[in-house]
Design a protein around this nucleic acid. Structure first.
Lengths: 197, 197
DNA sequence: ATCCCCATGTAATTTGTTACATGATTGA
DNA sequence: TCAATCATGTAACAAATTACATGGGGAT
């Protein structure tokens, strides 16, 4: 399920230009999928070349013309196929967690900064999802409700985990905090760590 | 915080060869960071060239020689700098959620497959984390405990959400299930969808 | 017999991000 | 007046995955 296919999916809910599609991505997909113009515009060009969408140019005064894309029957079929056969991936790449693994090597102030930053992001995500949910009416597709709920729950739980467990990282007895990196730590604990991982 | 830096971090907990480092990644980082040999071996070569690690070849009988890497003082300092200054990202790319957004366009059997697959992955993640936690002793760094707990909680909550909300997607009245894609859906709902997103 | 583990690497390919290039309109 | 929004696209770059290439040892 690449960006090309997702653009097709977006267009199955209504005509749009590249700019619109980006906005749609940002509206609901933002928390689990991102796409920039550098991906979307080439994707639309390829979809057009493959006959999966059609493109009509709408001139505007004072602005560049809109290129409005519409999905074709072939495109609809192909998207249906993709939904029926693709096995979806779920990739997380969290430098945040990777860094916290090395919490010992950071001081308390730095750790607090990292945790507060992440908390802010999570709160913002919760607020954003809540805002779009409130603007919904009865006809919103179940899929949208499901993924929005999913995002909201995960963001809330992640924030709660940070709040209830941050003391593990920051309430460290003074002596344990690393301060003289060179002298004591140079050679001692090599080769004996496999058990800790 | 790229793979190069993370290899450096891994080596700050003990000497290792590329193969070992990959195993370490898989042991605990697997749920939020992945790295293949194609990333790790070049990273180690670059770290060596930059003087951040040293490499000593250990011949073995019947196997290719191990190239055991050790972090240098410069490497340790540089890693400390990275921890102190890098602002970490947290990127999620979930084709799973993206596809479920279009749940209307899938049949119940397919949805059940997708949900069951994801549930299995999440249960497996929980089990894996529980296993490594049980093998731990008192000296495990707090960072490792924190990230393991984080992963365990998120996996559990995600699984719970799927179980308690899957009926939204699969208990659909017969009539609503899409069956004749071409005829009814060709043109009707174009241009009126902005409000639903 | 066959598969997995050990152990190294390179090269091609795919994929996505960032920067560049342009420019009028609208609201603060 | 300054930033943001609308609107398109290309080109360079960065990064990671995948495939290729090699090969003995040990377990089932």
């Amino acid at each position: 399920m690449d960006i090309k296919t997702l653009c097709l999916g977006m267009l199955s809910y209504g005509d749009a230009c590249g700019y619109d599609i980006k906005k749609r991505f940002e509206a609901l997909f933002r928390h689990f999928y991102s796409a920039g113009y550098g991906s979307i515009y080439p994707a639309l060009a390829e979809l057009t070349a493959a006959g999966l969408v059609t493109c009509r140019a709408v001139p505007q005064d004072g602005r560049p013309e809109r290129k409005v894309y519409r999905i074709t029957e072939l495109g609809r079929r192909q998207f249906g196929d993709a939904l029926a056969t693709t096995q979806p991936q779920h990739k997380l790449r969290s430098e945040f967690l990777a860094m916290l693994y090395f919490a010992e090597l950071m001081d308390t102030a730095r750790l607090n900064d990292l945790l507060d930053d992440r908390l802010r992001q999570l709160r913002e995500a919760e607020a954003h999802i809540a805002a779009i949910q409130q603007a919904w009416n009865d006809e919103v597709p179940v899929g949208a409700r499901f993924v929005a709920g999913f995002g909201a729950v995960l963001a809330r739980v992640a924030a709660e985990y940070i709040e209830t467990h941050r003391h593990m990282l920051t309430n460290v007895p003074e002596s344990t905090v690393a301060d003289s990196p060179a002298t004591e730590r140079a050679t001692p604990q090599h080769e004996l760590i496999e058990s800790r991982i």
